[in-house]
């Protein structure tokens, strides 16, 4: 009967210093220790970042928990772009979505879970979004200062956090149309500030 037992897939060798894709391959093969390494590496900054989106530490912890469970189940679906040794963006995408569904679940328990949207790595951004993603360099910081908090929040949710308009509407608790107009207005304002 041993013949029929599922042969344990050979996991690639990995260690605490392995790159994220190697760890994810090991996780996909069922290695719990690889998940522990990934958890240790990414949970702190994800937690810090989620804390800016939600002030309830319990919900943030629950969302993080769900995030790593999702990683455990879907590690096989991670496809690194060539030369990319980092899963940070992918993990963030999962984490922010988990936080949104967490908040939603808490708010309306009677509404069924949001339909799962595929986890896509953010990064295939338009040219102006690429500029925005380089906030830390150059004059963009001052330009952002000139935005009103509402416009800034809209830009943050859609561009920095990589959310769809629908998800941004959910986390900001404003209608989708408002998100769209705010993002457009913010981008126009920024373009003006950067080109003048």
């Amino acid at each position: 009967m041993k013949l029929f037992r599922r042969a344990h897939r050979r996991a690639p060798s990995y260690g605490p210093d392995s790159a994220d894709p190697a760890l994810l391959t090991a996780i996909a093969a069922g290695e719990a220790e690889a998940l522990e390494i990934l958890h240790r590496r990414h949970a702190p900054w994800l937690r810090a970042r989620l804390n800016y989106r939600c002030s309830d530490p319990d919900q943030v912890d629950a969302a993080l928990q769900e995030t790593f469970l999702a990683v455990w189940k879907n590690a096989g679906s991670f496809t690194p772009r060539p030369g990319d040794t980092d899963a940070g963006a992918w993990l963030w995408t999962i984490a922010i979505r988990q936080l949104i569904s967490q908040l939603r679940r808490r708010a309306n328990r009677w509404i069924s879970d949001i339909e799962a949207e595929p986890y896509e790595t953010i990064g295939d951004a338009s040219a102006e979004e690429t500029v925005l993603l380089n906030i830390e360099h150059g004059p963009l910081g001052t330009a952002l200062h000139s935005l009103s908090p509402e416009l800034r929040a809209a830009i943050q949710a859609t561009v920095l956090d990589g959310l769809t308009v629908r998800e941004a509407a959910r986390i900001l608790q404003i209608p989708e149309g408002t998100v769209k107009t705010r993002v457009m207005r913010a981008k126009a304002r920024l373009r003006e500030a950067l080109t003048s």
Partner: peptide, 8 residues
């Protein structure tokens, strides 16, 4: 925002 964009 800068920190977040950089951490990514």
């Amino acid at each position: 925002m800068s920190v977040e964009a950089h951490l990514m």
